[in-house]
Amino acid sequence: MRAAAVTDWRPALAPAILRRHDHARDADLLLLPERVVVLRGAAGTVVGLCDGTRSVDDIVDELAERFPGSPVATDVPPFLERLRKEGWLR
């Protein structure tokens, strides 16, 4: 069972943050004021689901369907929480 605060949260990018795909690197990026963050592996997919309409549970469920057998239920919520603490998600 997941914590209620995490379950109810519907993450979305903070207003000053943009997500873009860099074709030269074939990687997703977060464009922050005066900084660029390269999202490696499935991080771009996870962040792409953070549109403010899906709860963390919804994101985990969708990723579990896309990546069967991957530890999304244990890895994704702490990843999203780290991004929130950085101020990149609201």
Rank of each mutant, 00 (worst) to 15 (best):
E62S: 06
D61R: 12
A27Y: 05
V6Q: 09
L89G: 03
L30M: 09
P78G: 13
V60N: 02
F67W: 11
L49M: 15
H23K: 13
R19H: 05
R35L: 06
D22R: 08
V36Q: 14
E86D: 14
T45H: 12
V46D: 08
E81F: 00
V46W: 15
A14P: 14
R25T: 07
D26V: 00
V60Q: 05
L31I: 15
E34G: 02
P71L: 03
A64L: 06
P68S: 07
E34D: 08
P78Q: 13
D8A: 11
W88K: 03
R25G: 10
L49F: 12
T53L: 12
V72T: 04
P33I: 02
L49H: 14
S70P: 02
P15M: 04
F67C: 02
E65Q: 13
D26L: 00
A16S: 04
V76N: 11
L30N: 01
L32C: 15
R90K: 06
V60C: 04
D8K: 05
T7H: 09
V38M: 11
L63Y: 03
V37A: 13
V60Y: 04
C50G: 07
D28T: 06
K85N: 03
G41I: 01
A24G: 05
E65R: 13
D58I: 13
K85F: 00
R40N: 05
P33F: 00
R19V: 01
V37W: 05
D28W: 13
L49P: 12
A12R: 15
D57T: 14
G44K: 11
L32N: 02
R19L: 12
F79L: 14
M1G: 15
A5M: 14
T53C: 10
M1Y: 10
A42D: 13
R40K: 09
V38T: 14
D57P: 01
D28P: 09
G69Q: 10
V76H: 09
E86V: 02
T45M: 11
T45I: 10
I59S: 07
R90D: 00
D57M: 05
L30C: 04
S70Y: 08
G48S: 07
R66E: 11
G48D: 07
R40L: 06
D75F: 10
K85A: 07
E86C: 06
A43E: 14
H23Q: 12
P68N: 05
A64S: 14
G48M: 10
V76D: 07
G41H: 15
G87K: 02
A42F: 10
